[in-house]
Amino acid sequence: MEQYLTLQNIGIATGFALILIGLYGGLTNKNILRIIVSFTIFNSGLNIVIVALAYLKGRVAPIIDDTTGLDNLSQKFVDPVPQALVLTAIVIGLGVTGVMLAYALKMYQNKQTLNINDFKETKW
């Protein structure tokens, strides 16, 4: 069991925990704003997992400067790809959250309630 307790795995596990908490919140809360916040937590968890997956033990951030020099960089750096991907994912999460908030605002304007159970006009 101890071999699993690396820094990376702790990070990944934290990310998973957040994902599950976020999903649980998104599926059980009734208030629309809480649902949106839960999905934000879900997104954060996703991003943490992605970044944690990029880690290699004992290495530094992928930026070339005087301390790293120009040689043998592939032995010195962590994986830059997931970091790039997570940047995109964060922005996407922001976009979706913004749109969801706008929808929430509009829904409140229409019905004066933020309970998701009140928005069942189309069913069956």
């Binding site: 969801m100 928005f119 189309t122």
Partner: peptide
């Protein structure tokens, strides 16, 4: 107005689906 709540339901579903896709891609 139905379109608004339909759009919101769509966004919720879409978030879950794309979250799974992102996780799978990175794995």
């Amino acid at each position: 107005k139905k379109g608004i709540s339909a759009g919101f339901k769509f966004l919720i579903a879409s978030s879950v689906i794309s979250g799974l896709l992102l996780l799978g891609t990175l794995f």
